[in-house]
Design a binder for these strands. Structure first.
Length: 211
DNA sequence: ACCCAGGTGGCCC
DNA sequence: GGGCCACATGGG
């Protein structure tokens, strides 16, 4: 018995096209972006990253040495910017050490210990920065599949089900998450737009609206 | 004046 | 484990 996650991916991919995530000019931007985008639109994250670049703070050594105030100033347009400025500095301070870890498990554990890195951000870094097969579960992912399958999922339960079912391919993992975010943003918010959703034929939520 | 964005941590039970 | 709250900008 399977949920058909892979076939859902193929439908999304056909509809939206390849998403080419993570958008970043340098690898370090993935780390910065992962923190900044928490509860913040990507548009504002892009602006903040450009501000950091202009301020010369968009590299590890500079950011490590920068004052909290300097960082705050550059990222002031993102939500929770004070908290994030503090956390960014702390994370950058530990990045070197974490990169030296050999085992995937150790890397993830180290990430999760850092202030500001929870499950989703850790997964995003494992996948898009370190390149491990770690599927990213965000709020959209849970909502989308709960509506399609008309049942509740615990996040780690859903993660396991997806990882057991889809091919173990890095580009697939990356693009699947990106596709789910795209679907979520356009059609699967709390107030859904099922009429035009590319998955309307396999998702009964538009009719029942039980979740 | 709402509501929410590619969440996290702290505190309570 | 789950439920609620603070964090605290910008866009619809």
């Amino acid at each position: 018995m399977s949920y058909g996650f892979y076939s859902i991916y193929k439908k999304l991919r056909k509809h939206f096209g390849f998403q080419n995530w993570w958008p970043a000019k340098t690898k370090f931007e993935i780390v910065v972006g992962a923190i900044l985008t928490q509860q913040t639109s990507w548009k504002n994250v892009e602006k903040a990253i450009e501000n950091l670049r202009k301020s010369g703070l968009l590299n590890e050594n500079k950011l490590r040495k920068a004052s909290i105030k300097e960082i705050e100033k550059a990222i002031k347009n993102v939500n929770f910017y004070k908290t994030k400025a503090k956390r960014l500095k702390e994370i950058v301070k530990n990045l070197n050490r974490i990169r030296k870890e050999k085992e995937e498990r150790r890397i993830k554990e180290s990430l999760l210990k850092l202030d500001g890195i929870g499950y989703e951000t850790a997964e995003a870094l494992m996948l898009y920065y370190f390149g491990f097969l770690d599927f990213v579960i965000d709020a959209y992912t849970i909502r989308i599949f709960e509506r399609i399958f008309e049942r509740k999922f615990k996040r780690n339960e859903l993660k396991k089900l997806i990882e057991e079912e889809i091919p173990k391919d890095l580009e697939l993992y990356k693009d699947f998450h990106a596709q789910l975010v795209e679907l979520g943003k356009r059609y699967c918010k709390k107030e859904p737009k099922c009429e035009e959703c590319p998955l309307r034929k396999i998702c009964k939520f538009g009719k029942n609206k039980t979740l």
